[in-house]
Design a protein around this nucleic acid. Structure first.
Length: 929
DNA sequence: GCTCTGGAAATATGC
DNA sequence: AGGCATATTTCCAGA
């Protein structure tokens, strides 16, 4: 195994060499490489791989958008990996895969070649792994050894190390994020990989670890490190940060300090201390907890149990890891980045090589030492028990049992409702929240207009508490997925009333919050801040394909996994409205939070009220229709009623569509522009055929505030609805679909437009198509619809079979059978899921559709509606008229869409092309290797 | 003494 | 290469 791994690694490295952009390619290549090696283990999904490549490559169109790029690669990868994992029993093998660091869950390979990792994966969690940096230090993992490399400069990534160390406690957590994986406890993915997978546990994958992890958390700790590895690592891992050490980011000066960033605000100041503290997550963790203590104690305990539920996730996690885009764990590894600034630091930092065992090294060191204890501490906070366990990877796996391996990957789209259950965001977060850097202290918890966001699970009548998971997701046009540049940050302190604990999964930090029956399964989210990771750090990650620049919108994504008597687990997800996280953007960029209508006959002429922020008298509202490939098909400026312009609202006249005789709805976008580069994200709008009854989907509005006034803003506050009808009412149809459960049938049925008011249906659908919908659906989960579909669609992976089994399919999204870890492994549902997930998410709607690989592939898809798919694909592009009715539904989407995409898209395309070329060539080369 | 914030200087990046 | 504009990240300082 090792060898294989090594090989893979090497390959990766080589890839790594490639420019960051190439990552995508790298992935592919790497994947391929991995595959090969893996093959052994894995059985290679090579095929898949190949597929993936092709996809990306092949379909320029798809590819065009970065979506594609990313996605495709990812997908393939993931699938592969996963499979591999599943298949492989070997822990090692599996681990290797995962670990591969390179591979992120996302599948992204770690391209960064610089590092050289030698290790047996098994042990190491990716996290740790990491990276060496440019220097190529080699780290050994040895047992522990994950070791990694250090990066000389690199400092690595932020991730880990930086994070934790850094700043304030809260920040720390952040750190964790990055490194989170490591962090262990909970890193589902990562750890899993490391140990988990390996772990004997049942299914290779995950079973073990992942899921459980969290709680297991305890184990986790260990997990991280993988058994083999030293606990230290593990410790580190937990914090995740620890890992960082290595990483500390290169750049930042702090880094070395680690984190400076981590540290907090100023690196300098503390340095030594800081670092340790901060860096070492240990401190952090401990700290946090303390603060949180109250919470902790209470919550933790209670939940813990719940956590188990997650367990499933193990598998899932694994899968996710694979699938997810992004994130890969590998990541961390990458240290590479070097900022100019960093350099110096880095050197110091980087240098740290971690000894195998210790690896964690400096940071780690600091941390490490602490870690263990820290870990414990932290954990204590959370779970107490878990924490303790920490280290041995294996152990965790054990604990995890409960967990169903199959918790859905973080980039899977899940419905907000299924059967009687409905997960709703009762109170949406504010549209702006200045995220803090590792180098800063926490900037506090995300707030709502009044108080804090509130999430509630309706329809759950059991007495057993559940765990609400929260992570930071993307808010762009693509399918919802963990945001690579932002991590949720645990806030603790006197002002925090909600207990929480962190878990890492696939490079994504997840905040777990107890959902208690005594509180009506309602949770006030006052414990979640947002950490911004440096773009350079993330972009250097092996598998990362997203660009951080101007990618500053996020959404809070909530998930809950409900174990069913039949052994299955219902997973629900609800995402918030988009949240702008940059300081500058918050101050300058116009933001459309709500729109009074999202569809209208092609004749236009009606006034539409937009509510949001930063509107100016000179603001312009531009309607645009883009082709799938991003080309502008039509663009026109709407007439703004300048007399009514307010900073938080603007009234414009809907311009007539270029073709007033459309026979089917046409999806377009519009944005508010305050200047050359000051444009809001795209908002959706659908032109309807003259005779078609209008369907308003209203945006979700959670933002009430804004819209409030508004005229007839439709904003429909989901929550409101939800409140009304706790159960399904609102729920997204999609969700329903997805869920094994009868899901929210109602909605589905309704969907069509049917209920304008509810329009959920629409949303659902649309979502599918568009990720954009998000905003709208946010509450529910914009994602849902889309998600689901994608997944189903994924069908592309028919293999998985989901298609075949509706249940499964549903399950995929929603349900997971605890019982059968196999799923995960097996092609079965899980198997694919991941795949799907991957593909879909990553790929983005577009790809998916396209992915088509098998159109036929998924029955589901079809079932659901090819249209959707199609639409989605188109949509992805931006507007695609094609979307149609469904799209209409999408209206909901209204809200969020990033503008950037356009430009980026092209960029991506170009890059992609290059990459592809390079890859091709490189691949051949690698092959040799 | 610490966290949370707002503001802005210092850097980076892109054109 | 240099300059400018914009975006990101790091620092400061006040509450």
């Amino acid at each position: 195994m090792q060898d294989t791994f090594c090989l893979s690694v090497n390959s990766k490295f080589s890839f790594g060499a490639a420019a960051g952009k190439e990552r995508g390619l790298h992935y592919l290549t790497s994947l391929a490489a991995d595959m090969k090696s893996a093959e052994e283990d894995a059985y290679s999904y090579t095929p898949n791989v190949s597929l993936s490549l092709p996809l990306g490559m092949g379909n320029p169109c798809l590819a065009t958008q970065y979506h594609t790029l990313q996605s495709s690669p990812v997908i393939s990868v993931s699938s592969c990996h996963q499979t591999g994992y599943s298949l492989q029993n070997d822990n090692h093998a599996a681990s290797s895969y995962y670990l591969p660091h390179g591979l992120r869950p996302n599948g992204a390979p770690a391209l960064e070649s610089p590092r050289i990792e030698i290790t047996a994966y098994s042990q190491y969690p990716e996290d740790e792994v990491e990276e060496s940096n440019s220097e190529d230090h080699i780290i050994k993992r040895g047992v522990n050894s994950i070791v990694t490399l250090t990066l000389p400069n690199a400092d690595g990534y932020r991730d880990p190390s930086c994070l934790s160390p850094a700043s304030s406690i809260s920040s720390r957590s952040c750190n964790s994020e990055a490194s989170s994986y490591e962090s262990g406890f909970y890193n589902y993915d990562n750890s899993p990989q490391n140990s988990p997978w390996q772990s004997p546990c049942v299914s290779p994958r995950g079973s073990s670890s992942l899921l459980s992890c969290p709680h297991a958390g305890v184990p986790t700790g260990s997990p991280h490190h993988s058994p083999s590895t030293s606990p230290q690592i593990g410790a580190v891992a937990e914090e995740g940060w620890p890992a960082q050490p290595r990483g500390s980011r290169p750049n930042s000066p702090s880094c070395s300090g680690g984190n400076n960033g981590g540290m907090g605000k100023r690196k300098y100041s503390f340095n030594g201390n800081t670092y340790r503290q901060t860096s070492c997550s240990p401190n952090q963790s401990p700290i946090p907890s303390p603060h949180g203590s109250p919470r902790v104690s209470v919550t933790d305990e209670s939940w813990l149990p719940n956590t188990n539920q997650y367990t499933n996730s193990a598998i899932v996690a694994a899968i996710n890891a694979l699938s997810t885009d992004g994130v890969v764990d590998m990541g961390e590894g990458i240290p590479i980045k070097t900022r100019k600034t960093m350099l110096d630091h880095s050197s110091s930092m980087s240098l740290k090589v971690e000894p195998g065992g210790e690896e964690l090294g400096h940071d780690g060191e600091l941390c490490h030492e602490d870690y263990p204890s820290r870990m414990a501490l932290k954990k204590e906070n959370y779970c107490g028990g878990f924490l303790d366990v920490p280290q041995h990877p294996y152990s965790w796996s054990k604990p995890k049992p409960y967990l169903s391996p199959s918790l859905p990957a973080l980039d899977w789209q899940l419905p907000s409702c299924s059967g009687p259950y409905n997960l709703q965001i009762e109170v949406q977060p504010k549209s702006h929240h200045r995220a803090h850097y590792e180098t800063e202290g926490s900037r506090g918890a995300v707030k709502a207009l009044s108080g804090h966001p509130v999430v509630q699970l309706y329809g759950y009548m059991e007495s057993e508490p559940l765990t609400l998971q929260l992570f930071i997701g993307t808010a762009d046009d693509r399918l919802l997925r963990p945001h690579a540049f932002y991590q949720v940050h645990r806030i603790t302190g006197k002002t925090v009333s909600t207990a929480s604990h962190e878990v890492m999964q696939s490079n994504t930090k997840i905040l777990e919050i107890p959902l208690l029956p005594e509180n009506n399964m309602r949770a006030i989210i006052d414990c979640a801040g947002i950490l911004k990771l440096r773009n350079s750090d993330i972009e250097l990650r092996k598998g990362e394909t997203d660009i951080g620049r101007k990618n500053t919108r996020v959404r809070l994504v909530f998930r809950v996994h409900i174990n069913q008597p039949n052994g299955r687990t219902v997973s629900l997800q609800a995402s918030s409205n988009p949240i702008e996280c940059s300081q500058r953007s918050a101050q300058e960029l116009p933001l459309v939070e709500k729109q009074s209508m999202d569809s209208y006959p092609a004749t236009g002429g009606k006034m539409i009220l937009l509510s949001g922020l930063n509107f100016l008298p000179e603001s312009k509202v531009v309607f645009v229709e883009k082709a799938q490939d991003g080309h502008h098909l039509w663009e026109t400026e709407a007439k703004v009623d300048k007399d009514s312009v307010k900073s938080n609202s603007i009234v414009v006249e809907i311009p007539p569509y270029k073709n007033q005789r459309i026979s089917s709805p046409v999806q377009v976008n519009f944005y508010v522009c305050n200047g050359k580069r000051k444009r809001s994200q795209y908002q959706r709008f659908t032109y309807l055929p003259p005779n078609v009854p209008m369907i308003k989907t209203e945006p979700n509005d959670e933002y009430d505030t804004l819209g409030t006034v508004g005229l007839s803003m439709h904003s429909k506050p989901y929550y409101s609805q939800s409140r009304l009808t706790p159960i399904m009412p609102v729920a997204d149809p999609d969700a329903c679909l997805v869920g094994g459960y009868p899901p929210c049938p109602p909605r589905h049925a309704a969907m069509p437009s049917s209920s304008p008011s509810s329009s959920p249906t629409l949303h659902d659908l649309s979502p599918v198509a568009y990720s954009k919908c998000l905003p709208n659906s946010p509450t529910h989960a914009a994602p849902l619809g889309p998600v689901v579909h994608p997944i189903q669609e994924t069908p592309g992976h028919p293999n998985l079979a989901h298609p075949s089994s509706p249940d499964h399919s549903s399950s995929l999204g929603m349900l997971h059978s605890h019982g059968s870890p196999n799923h995960l492994n097996s092609p079965g549902p899980h198997g694919y899921h991941p795949i799907y997930t991957n593909s879909s998410p990553s790929s983005s709607p577009v790809s998916q559709p396209s992915t088509p690989g098998g159109p036929a592939e998924s029955p589901y898809v079809q079932g659901y509606s090819p249209t959707q798919t199609a639409a989605s694909s188109t949509q992805a592009g931006g507007s695609s008229p094609s979307l149609l009715p469904e799209d209409t539904s999408p209206p909901s989407m209204a809200i969020t869409v990033k503008q950037e995409p356009q430009e980026l898209d092209q960029m991506y395309l170009d890059d992609v092309n290059e990459i592809i070329r390079n890859d091709l060539s490189s691949i051949s080369v690698h092959t040799h290797a």
